[in-house]
Write a protein that binds this DNA or RNA. Structure first.
Lengths: 223, 223
DNA sequence: AACAAACCGGACCGGTCGGTCAGGTTCAAC
DNA sequence: GTTGAACCTGACCGACCGGTCCGGTTTGTT
């Protein structure tokens, strides 16, 4: 959906990654600036989080601030495009793990990849970890993430290596939670999240434990 | 330390909760406004988080913005006073649980109280969950929290109901992490954190699991 | 009652933010 | 080469922030 090489016939008003106009070909300088913008935005959002200013992104890209708003009507649209790509990449990782030999190891690898992405990218973990950004692209990406997580979880459940009462949504939420658990102490130990991922995964593997008293979530946002 | 009824001979420059002047008695209106301010700040920070504006707090208290800065030189000092009180209350809860009959249940009750506080108070969980606010009062409060958590953990460890490689700092970090895990879906289910507290506690109780590969944190902030 | 110190409050300051727009520039079609 | 639409830019706008300041008010004391 947010793949920059996607079908150019897609609706340009809902997909700013494709050609912005349907009639004429996009101009060469416009495409060049768009690439510069997306690269700079990815870097700056990753390093400074969602509160990075548009001015800062424009400077990093070497373009004017007005050009940013020409390509994306609001800052949130730009942010959603960046985070959407990251979500897509993580979904792809999950899909690739869906037919691995060891379902338990595959689920752990998926969670590891998720936490690593959050560690690397401040904006990603801020957007995924809070119900603030209601952008449809992001919502859809998270939904796809839950689906692939459910696939991975289901295989491990059938194998009997993880408890029966864990869902794909649990996994997605726990990936965010593991990162947040370690976050306050990550300056002192950048790999601390591995400790809590191990602990949480022991909880996920506790097949002999009593079922969790509280039911699983059925949807992740809105009320 | 941040108890409003604490010893009035404490250094007023480091403890804004006590009388602001050593020589004369504080004026009646000043004390009244201070109480209004602290109450309003607690409410507004709890509801809107650390980004609540000083103007908003002053309006809720029914006082002028200048009066806020008369009592606390910066917004961060006010925030630290509020959060410090909450930390003290949680430490007291932990101390009260330190001689309970069932160490395992006591540790779980402590964690439950911690998550409940985070659910109720946005500012509290923002300050505890991020290494941003370096205010000494807050740092000291977190340190005391880790100590009482270590006491509770140690009793449960000796009893053999929790794994040997869990520390008090782990517990404090996990309390924050459990809340953050459920946070994205708490609009739909405000009690969802109970599910993940149960799951994490199963991990903590996994006495037969292999020891965690990554070592425990030895300090929580700075680098 | 009279006084001075303490206190109050909101206009004000400098700074930052997301977003707009007029005017100059560049590209591509012919 | 000419032309005009698409594009680029950075000065600018209004809103909001934390924090300051001083004229006016309140308070406790004498």
């Amino acid at each position: 959906m947010t793949n920059p090489t996607a079908n150019p016939t897609a609706n340009p008003t809902t997909n700013p990654m494709t050609a912005p106009r349907t009639s004429r070909q996009a101009r060469a300088d416009a495409l060049r600036n768009r690439r510069l913008l997306l690269g700079a935005a990815a870097d700056v959002f990753a390093e400074y989080g969602t509160e990075a200013s548009v001015t800062q992104i424009a400077q990093r890209a070497g373009i004017g601030k007005g050009t940013v708003f020409r390509h994306f009507p609001t800052k949130e649209d730009l942010l959603a495009a960046i985070v959407g790509e990251l979500l897509d990449a993580l979904v792809d990782t999950g899909v690739a793990l869906s037919d691995a030999d060891d379902p338990e190891a595959a689920l752990l690898a998926f969670m590891t990849a998720g936490v690593e992405l959050q560690v690397k990218d401040r904006a990603f973990c801020e957007v995924v970890g809070r119900p603030s950004l209601r952008h449809p692209d992001v919502q859809a990406g998270i939904e796809r993430l839950c689906e692939v997580a459910e696939t991975l979880t289901d295989r491990a459940r059938r194998q009997g290596t993880v408890r029966q009462d864990i869902t794909g949504r649990d996994i997605v939420l726990l990936v965010g939670g593991v990162h947040q658990t370690a976050a306050p102490a990550m300056d002192a130990d950048p790999e601390l999240w591995r400790r809590y991922l191990g602990l949480v995964f022991d909880g996920i593997r506790a097949v002999t434990a009593a079922p969790l008293a509280h039911p699983a979530p059925d949807h992740m946002r809105l009320g």
